[in-house]
Design a protein around this nucleic acid. Sequence first.
DNA 1: CCCCAGGTCGTCA
DNA 2: TGACGACATGGG
Length: 284
Amino acid sequence: MKLVKEIDSFEPKDIFECGQCFRWNREENGSYTGVFSDCVLNVEKCEGNIVFNGNENVTEEKINEYFDLNRDYSKIKKELSKVDNNLLEATNFGSGIRILNQDLWETIISFIISANNNIPRIKGIIEKISKKYGKEIKFNEKSYYEFPTPKELSKATVEDLKNLGLGFRDVRVYETTQMINSKEFDLDELYTLDTKQAQEKLLTLSGVGPKVADCILLFSTLKRFDVFPIDVWVRRVMNDLYIHEQDEKKLNKNYIRKIADTKFGTLEGMAQQYLFYWKREQSA
DNA sequence: CCCCAGGTCGTCA
DNA sequence: TGACGACATGGG
């Protein structure tokens, strides 16, 4: 299928390289190709329009949902840019960011793998998992692979996972997969909980701590903006911009979170993403 | 050889 | 609670 849309606040590079997703890759012409659910899709910006080119499973409805097209990002940026000059600059820099509605299960496993890891390697591991345990999809003569279902991934032993290069995360991915596949952990229940409760429930999964839980809440279909994932980059940018005191407070996550709460309010998750992308691209 | 990467977990005070 | 080291792997 092919679809052309005029969309405000939509820049492929900003969306796919702001750290929220791991299955999108840049093509030579600057477009991006990726896989979500059973869809393979190429996204390109041409003279202000967004061109979507995908396999037969892609529909406009799925695109609207996945790319969060029913949300007014101009309004969010306007709101955040009123906070201070830092956010003004950060939202201008990443003005084409949209927070994707990614599959909850896939997001959980992806961010467990992200722990103490770097983005290129995270992408490589997820690709290997998909290739080995997910269904093949053909698109333009090439093979792509769906991210495996819990049932499909539950066939992987700890040893299998280790061989894919997961490092010390092999046991955690294994245990969490078993918990979800057996329904001991109910994914659907998360949607019924408020953010705080959902956070606590996510923490019961193996390999999910505060940072990973917040990323899951922010980047999946759970879509909570009232979280503030703190990793090394966010800590760095928050220290640089807002904390000019002793080293003790600089290292304190709760202190950073409190500043984020009071400054950014219920949009703190969005603020985090603009700041993360801004800071990381600058030092790249 | 070092250090680092979208941290979590177990342990110990 | 809060600090601290271990934990695999690959790239710079």
